[in-house]
């Protein structure tokens, strides 16, 4: 009986660990968010880049995106939340707002196009997956595996 009880607890503990692991995968999944302030064309219309957008997201330093800028945020977890303060032209007053969006789990990186978002264009225009090119440049192909002692210190 006693043994059974212990087995139960062991199974419980293992399940708990697996549970924590799964939870960690979900809440810890990191995404790279590229925010573009670039002019886009959609259905023949051109949506101009804003003059300046001030952006801030949790866990990142606030950043400023001038026209034609691409800035990078890291987002941990699946919900993306970016606060912005956008100025369309130098003279106009800034508009404030929050971008709230779920990032699909499997996406490593996304591109958010600000002008498209501000113009209320459909999602597939302003929110797209970013496929990273394999770093071809790094084909300094013979990366040697050195069995060097003490390098870590």
């Amino acid at each position: 009986m006693r043994v059974k009880r212990q087995t139960l607890f062991i199974v419980g503990a293992v399940l708990l660990l697996v549970g924590i692991a799964v939870l960690m995968v979900i809440i810890g999944r990191g995404h790279i968010v590229y925010v573009d302030n670039k002019t886009v064309e959609y259905n023949g219309n051109e949506y101009k880049a804003y003059n300046l957008v001030e952006l801030s997201a949790k866990g990142n330093d606030p950043q400023e995106a001038f026209a034609r800028d691409r800035i990078l945020f890291k987002c941990v977890g699946q919900s993306l939340k970016i606060e912005y303060e956008a100025t369309k032209k130098q003279s106009s007053s800034p508009e404030k707002g929050i971008i709230n969006k779920k990032i699909p789990f499997s996406w490593d990186a996304v591109v958010v196009n600000l002008p498209a978002y501000f113009a209320g264009l459909p999602e597939e225009v302003w929110f797209t997956e970013f496929i990273q090119e394999p770093p071809a440049d790094k084909s300094s192909s013979n990366e040697e595996i050195v069995f060097d002692e003490f390098t870590a210190f």
């Binding site: 660990l17 924590i20 692991a21 939870l23 960690m24 995968v25 809440i27 810890g28 999944r29 990191g30 995404h31 890291k74 941990v76 490593d108």
Partner: peptide
């Protein structure tokens, strides 16, 4: 490889290592 960031990543690595 799984792109788990921050503390969750560390906890997960520990669990995998057990």
């Amino acid at each position: 490889d799984w792109r788990i960031y921050g503390i969750p990543g560390i906890v997960l690595a520990m669990i995998i290592s057990i």
